[in-house]
C-alpha cells in the first residue's frame, strides 16, 4: 500500500487566486509557442523504409509479376485478407496468379505476407491512404496492387538486410 503524503499547502496556495494567475500565465505563454499540428492532407506523413504500409506486389524489371502464386501469404494472413487464384504460364516459373486480391478493409498491415513470401514478391509499401465510397472499391485487384520493383527498392533492401541477420 502506498501512503501518499500530501504536502501542506502554503497560505498563498490556499487562497487560490495567485495559483490561478500562475496557470493563466502558463496558458498565455503557450499561445505563442510553435504549433505541433500537422496539416495532414497537405503535409504528408514522413515515411521511410521501415514504414509498414499497405502490401503491394512487385513487378520485376522485365515486366513480369514476381509472384508464383504459392499461396503462402494467403495462408499466413491472419485476417484472411488475401485471395489468390493461380494459372499456368509459359514462363520458367510455370505458375502465376490469375487473380490476386487483397481486401484492404481486412488487412491489418501486419507484414506476415511479406515475411512468408519466398520469392520477394510482396512487400509492405509506404502507401498509407485508404479511402473509397464503397466497400467493394477497397478490395484491390492485381492491377491496383502491382508496383515496379524500383519504387519498392528501399523496402526490399531493408527487408533483405533484416533477413541477413538471421
Amino acid at each position: 500500500m502506498v501512503v501518499v503524503q500530501r504536502r501542506e499547502l502554503t497560505f498563498w496556495e490556499r487562497i487560490y487566486l495567485p495559483e490561478i494567475f500562475r496557470g493563466l500565465a502558463i496558458t498565455f505563454k503557450k499561445m505563442f509557442e510553435p504549433r505541433v499540428t500537422r496539416q495532414y492532407p497537405e503535409e504528408a506523413l514522413p515515411t521511410n523504409e521501415v514504414t509498414r504500409g499497405q502490401p503491394r506486389l512487385v513487378v520485376k524489371d522485365d515486366g513480369n509479376i514476381a509472384c508464383v502464386s504459392c499461396g503462402l501469404c494467403e495462408a499466413a494472413c491472419p485476417a484472411y485478407a488475401i485471395t489468390i487464384d493461380s494459372q499456368e504460364t509459359e514462363r520458367f516459373i510455370e505458375r502465376e496468379p490469375e487473380r490476386f486480391e487483397i481486401d484492404m478493409l481486412r488487412c491489418i498491415l501486419c507484414g506476415f505476407c511479406e515475411e512468408a513470401c519466398p520469392k520477394e514478391a510482396i512487400f509492405m509499401s509506404d502507401e498509407l491512404e485508404l479511402a473509397n465510397t464503397t466497400r467493394q472499391g477497397l478490395v484491390y485487384d492485381m492491377k491496383q496492387l502491382e508496383r515496379p520493383a524500383s519504387t519498392l527498392k528501399p523496402r526490399i533492401d531493408y527487408v533483405r538486410r533484416i533477413n541477413d541477420r538471421w
Partner: peptide, 10 residues
C-alpha cells in the same frame, strides 16, 4: 482558435 493555440494546435 484560442483553445487550439493554448494547446499548441492550429
Amino acid at each position: 482558435k484560442i483553445s487550439a493555440w493554448m494547446q499548441l494546435r492550429i
